[in-house]
Amino acid sequence: MKVDIWSDIACPWCYIGKRRFEAGLKNFAHADDVEIAWHSFQLDPSLPEHYDGSEVDYLVERKGMPRAGVEQMTAHVKAQAAEVGLDYDFDNLVVANSLRAHRLLHLAARHGVADAVKEALLSAHFERGVDIGDPDRLVEIGTAAGLAADEVRAALDDETLGAEVEADFARARAYGIQGVPFYVIDEKFGVSGAQPAEVFTDALNQAWADAHPLVMPVAEGAVCGPDGCDPVEQKASDAK
């Protein structure tokens, strides 16, 4: 079973959703048979490489909301993050364009360390006040996951990786994805948003049942009627 996940590194609900999905997956009986693929999505492609202001400043400007409303919203998100063990620090968060970080994520996927790099990027952005638009910081994140420093630095402006990121954007549009996180299970079932863990478990169970329909074998030549199945039942009793 494959789960494709679209998310942005600069998306607070995407990190919360990652934790909730992991909890839901943990309660799924066939978790070892699940392949996870991370896909790129940008909530605001127009962001400059470096924004001169806080997360609250950015949201006030971008959404046109009153500052008090934005502060209330970020406090709510911080509380939700804490419930899944995350320590969001909006005061020190560095608002930056996530495009280069997405290229790093695609490089990580080629080396089988996408989940580790995704986790590190989200933590760096929301918990540790790291500038995810800074090439030096991205090299640090990549090398911590076992990638070569020169390969990471080259990847940040690599056109081929950039095309892979753009392909993710295009595929999201084809699916009609307008917000993240968004989960596509076996290209059939979609889950939108940072849902509770049990929602993910239910969705995984539904997808598994759909892909593995239960078939009850009947002995060759047996015929079942209103009064039972003979000689199948006789054979079963003989075996006792």
Rank of each mutant, 00 (worst) to 15 (best):
K2D: 15
K2W: 13
D4F: 09
I5V: 15
I5Q: 11
I5M: 12
S7L: 09
S7A: 13
I9P: 01
A10E: 10
A10I: 08
P12L: 00
W13C: 07
G17H: 07
K18Q: 13
R19T: 01
F21I: 07
E22D: 14
G24M: 08
N27K: 14
N27C: 10
F28E: 10
A31K: 13
A31G: 13
D32E: 15
D33H: 08
E35H: 06
I36F: 06
S40K: 07
S40P: 05
F41I: 01
F41S: 05
D44S: 13
P45Q: 00
P45C: 03
P45A: 04
S46F: 08
G53T: 03
E55A: 15
E55H: 14
L59G: 08
K63A: 09
K63W: 00
P66F: 02
R67W: 04
A68Q: 13
G69T: 12
V70R: 00
V70D: 00
V70Y: 03
M73Y: 10
A75C: 07
H76P: 15
V77G: 08
K78L: 04
K78H: 03
A79L: 14
A79D: 13
A81M: 06
A82N: 02
V84C: 01
G85I: 03
N92W: 15
L93R: 09
V94F: 11
N97H: 05
N97R: 09
S98Q: 05
S98C: 04
H102L: 09
R103H: 05
L107I: 03
A108C: 01
A109L: 07
A109T: 11
R110D: 15
H111T: 01
V113Y: 01
A114V: 01
L122T: 13
E127N: 10
G129Q: 09
G129I: 13
D131T: 06
I132S: 13
D134A: 13
D136V: 07
R137G: 14
L138V: 03
V152I: 03
A155T: 11
D158H: 05
A163W: 04
E164P: 00
E164D: 14
V165A: 07
A167C: 05
A170T: 15
A172C: 09
A172M: 10
R173I: 09
R173F: 07
V180M: 01
P181H: 00
Y183R: 00
Y183E: 00
G190Y: 03
S192P: 11
G193P: 01
A197D: 10
V199E: 11
V199P: 00
V199D: 06
V199N: 07
A203R: 02
L204T: 05
N205A: 08
A207G: 06
W208N: 06
W208F: 04
D210Q: 12
H212T: 00
M216A: 11
M216E: 14
A219G: 15
A219I: 10
A219K: 12
E220A: 14
G225H: 02
D227W: 02
G228T: 00
D230L: 12
A236I: 10
S237C: 04
A239Q: 12
